[in-house]
Amino acid sequence: MRILTHNMLCCLKCDSFPLKIVAVNKEQDEQDENPEFIKHMLDRLDYDALKSAAKDLSIEGLPDALPENVAENQAALTSLHKLLLEVVVKDGELQCTNPACNRSYPIKQGIPNMVLREDEVKIKAV
């Protein structure tokens, strides 16, 4: 699971977002930069969730807010690339931070398992 993927996952029981990452085994998977893609994703990302992921993985140096001119800021684009696409959580879990829920979702061989048990499937109030 890459951090870009973490950026779109909510708790399926209570919609809590973002999920806390507990990484048992993670790696850095270097790859070619694609600044166009990062720019393309800028207004789709949730920056708070990104900060929370970085904190969970003890990655430091993220500014409190995304700089305004980030699309022209090569260094910022490179940092985002590294964080979003190169960090891979191989094993661990995603934890819901809502104390009333506390559901955790295991990550095995890089794949988060988000499947709820039958008795957990919520019927949403209409």
Binding site: M1, T5, D48, V115
Partner: peptide, 28 residues
């Protein structure tokens, strides 16, 4: 493998999670 991330999830839940996140973003 560089390009693809896999998630074990059913399609309906995937729609739920993507929408819940969007609604949160709008509220923020």
């Amino acid at each position: 493998h560089d390009t693809i991330d896999l998630i074990q999830i059913d399609a309906q839940s995937f729609e739920d999670t993507i929408k819940a996140r969007l609604i949160k973003k709008e509220t923020d």
